[in-house]
Amino acid sequence: MSVYHYSAKTMAGKSVSLEDYKGKVLLIVNVASQCGFTYQYEDLQKLYDRYKDRGFVILGFPCNQFADQEPGTNDDVHTFCTLRYGVTFPMFQKVNVRDADAHPLFTYLASVKPFQGFNETHSVAKILFQLIREKHPEYMVGDSIKWNFTKFLIDREGNVVNRFESTTDLLDVEPHIEALL
């Protein structure tokens, strides 16, 4: 099994098979516009610009499951990402990434690459840990997605190679991307 067995709807509402990205290195990310990690959009776009001509694609999946940090419509999300961060990588419609209503792609990703823990030295980690501990301790159960901006690196054959939590900066992800390119 690989990510190519899944499909998702683009912001325009068109169903797209991830098989359309066969032969590309993918970074699949659940994103949110009002998250403490939203600044990562800037680095995601920089990575996309730097490597897209070498077969690298980022797939963004907005999610409102974590503290309602993506409350707007798909149009709102698209406008925000485009105007605020100049996002040009493919963005899909809002999905759930954990629990019973999770998009099957994210259930698959989390099952293949379990949660390895957060980077406790990250500048946003202290706030994130307190928020999860006080308001959402259930998020820490199992290997599901724990927060926005969880990143999954996929090789050119559609295999999940690595999982990077929201507390992993994209500078630390870049060498892993380069190795697959």
Rank of each mutant, 00 (worst) to 15 (best):
V3I: 15
Y4W: 13
S7Y: 13
A12L: 12
G13A: 12
G13I: 08
E19D: 13
D20A: 15
D20F: 07
K22W: 06
K22I: 14
G23F: 02
K24A: 04
V25N: 03
I28D: 05
I28C: 06
N30M: 09
V31P: 01
S33H: 08
C35N: 07
G36P: 05
T38M: 06
Y39I: 13
L47H: 02
Y48D: 01
R50C: 09
K52A: 03
R54W: 00
F56Y: 03
G60I: 00
G60K: 02
F61C: 06
F66C: 05
P71K: 08
P71V: 06
G72K: 07
N74Q: 07
N74F: 05
D76Q: 06
R84K: 15
Y85V: 06
V87P: 05
T88Q: 14
F92Q: 09
V95M: 11
H103L: 11
T107G: 11
L109K: 05
V112K: 15
Q116H: 11
H122N: 14
S123L: 10
V124H: 12
A125D: 07
A125E: 08
K126N: 14
K126Q: 14
L128G: 09
F129A: 13
R133A: 14
K135E: 14
H136W: 06
G142N: 04
I145T: 09
K146E: 10
T150H: 13
K151Q: 05
K151W: 07
D155C: 04
R156L: 05
E157P: 00
V161R: 12
R163G: 07
L170S: 06
L171R: 08
D172P: 01
E174N: 02
I177Q: 01
I177R: 00
A179Y: 09
